[in-house]
Amino acid sequence: MKPIRPSRLIAKAVLALAGFLAVFPLAWTALNALKNNVDIITRVPKVVFTPTLANISYILGRDSVLTGLYNSAVACGAAVLIGIVLGLPAAYAVARYPNRFAGDIQFFVLSLRFLPPVAVAIPLMVIWLQIGLYDTLPALIVTYSLLTISVIMWLAIPAFQGVPKEIEEAAFVDGYGAYSVFWRIALPVAARSLIGAIAFSFVLVWNEFLIALMLSSSNAKTLPIVASELSQQGMNVPWGILNASVVLLSLPPLLFLGVLSGFLNSVFRQKKS
C-alpha cells in the first residue's frame, strides 16, 4: 500500500473541519432548544442533560409566533405564486423569442437586485401609510412580488434555454400553437430546473428581514421579526426559548435542501454539455 502523503492528510483534515463548522453551530442550537435554562447557562458546555420539550411547546403555544408563522406563510406563498404566474411566461418569451431588447430586459431584471432594500422600504412605508395599507399583508405581498418575479424570471431564462429546441420545433410541426408549446412542452420539460428556481425565490422571501421590519408594526409581522423580538426581553434572556424559535424559523428553508442542491447540479450539468 502506498503511504498517504502528509499534505493530503492535512487537506482532508481541513475539509473535515469545514464540514464540521458548517453544521455544528446549528446542531448545537437545536440541542440547546431541548435544554432547560440551567443546562444552557454553564461555563462548560453540557452534552449530557435531561431533555425537555418545554421550550418548543412554549414557542408553539404563543399567539405571536403562530401569527408570525401564518403571516410568513401567506406573504411568501402569495408572492411566490405571483412570481410564478408573471415570471415564468416572461422568462419563456425572453428565452425563446429573442428580440433587440432581450439583453436590456435581462439587465433590468438583474439590476432590481442592486437596489438597496432600505431605499425601497422607506418610500414604500410612506406610500402604504398614506393609502392606509401599512402593516397589512397585501402591502407585504406586493412588495415581495418585486423580489419573486425578478428572481424567478432571472433563473428561469436559462432553464427554458436548456430545453432542446428540436422538441419545440417538432411540436410546431405537429400543429401546436405557440401557447400550447409553452404549456405542454416547455413547462413540463424544464420543470425540474423551474422548481429549483421557485424554491430559491421562496427561501429568499422567507428569509427576508429588513423590508418586513419596516413595513409591519403589529398585525403583519413575519416570523423572522417575531423571532428577533423574542431576544429583546431584557437581561433575563430565555435562551432555550430563543433557540427553539431559531430552529422553527430555519426549518422551512432546510426542507428545500434536496431540491436546491439538485437544482445546482442540473445547472452545472447543462454547462458541461
Binding site: A18, G19, A22, V23, P25, L26, W28, T29, V203, W206, N207, F209, P224, A227, S228, S231, L242, V246, L249, S250, P253, L254, F256, L257, L260, S261, L264
Partner: peptide, 16 residues
C-alpha cells in the same frame, strides 16, 4: 453540508 448555512435565514444565522 456546505449548502446548509446559506439556506438559513440571516436572522437565524445571526442568532446561532
Amino acid at each position: 453540508l456546505f449548502i446548509i448555512p446559506v439556506l438559513l435565514p440571516r436572522v437565524s444565522a445571526a442568532f446561532v
